[in-house]
Write a protein that binds this DNA or RNA. Sequence first.
DNA 1: CCTGAAATATCTAAAAG
DNA 2: CTTTTAGATATTTCAGG
Lengths: 155, 155
Amino acid sequence: MKLDNYDRTLLAALQGDGRVPQSELGQRAHLSTAAVNRRLKLLEGAGVIEKFSAQLNPRALGYDLTVIVEVKAENERAHLLDEMQRRFAACPQVQQCYYVTGEWDFVLIFLVRSMDQYVELTRELFFESGNVKSFNTLVVMNRVKTGSTVPVDMA
Amino acid sequence: MKLDNYDRTLLAALQGDGRVPQSELGQRAHLSTAAVNRRLKLLEGAGVIEKFSAQLNPRALGYDLTVIVEVKAENERAHLLDEMQRRFAACPQVQQCYYVTGEWDFVLIFLVRSMDQYVELTRELFFESGNVKSFNTLVVMNRVKTGSTVPVDMA
DNA sequence: CCTGAAATATCTAAAAG
DNA sequence: CTTTTAGATATTTCAGG
């Protein structure tokens, strides 16, 4: 989909605050609310806007600990890697999972209640799997910047 | 703030879709819309809901490449580490930044348009900094699971 | 493609049980 | 907590440039 600067203005605003009224979006982008409405529908339909969501505070839900884990697979046959990805993605405490080049095969970011819970999850996901050769745990001391913000560059 | 299962139901629903009407939230949680409204105001006021936002598709905005970078600091004096964190966080292409224990000091997740842009950013952020001892680049082949979803466990 | 106005839906707050 | 009410806001649609 082709985006103009009007669209980018709307996207940047809604990424910062998903509840800005369309009337105010119109003022910021110099469009009528009807034009804003039409564009938002197109942006959502085209998948440029994937979804609107509430960002929750992990602490408030008892998730105080973030752990980053690098994982090396034992066997790299495609269907085995696929199976690992599915298993990792299916775990609610695995907030993010990336398949990467280099020394490691996966990088996972866990959100857990405690070190105990993390250890328990490593058992389930790594030890019992049979296809994890090794993994390296990085404990997060400070979540300096989080979220999934995408840069929006004006033309 | 103390949460009950009503709150957790609301939070889980809004994390999945930030635009579910309060009337429908009420049906799902078995609450009146008035009760939903009151609870949401409290949840937002207490910071349990940090914000509402639109989740954008990086590809649609030209950000095709995700890179994970491990960074080791030269000098670990507190104010120098603070300065690094501020600099990393201020870069729009640094989607996430974590300060971690172990062999590395920081883990960064970049969203970039191209390898060229990544190389350029490493110059700005790492080489010209004077406080980066070394860094290791992991190129993401597949974003298996992304986002910043927090597990919501019912009591 | 846009605007402006009218119709719908949603949200918010208050009152009473 | 509930339901109901009423008014303010927001969204969506539609007529027309």
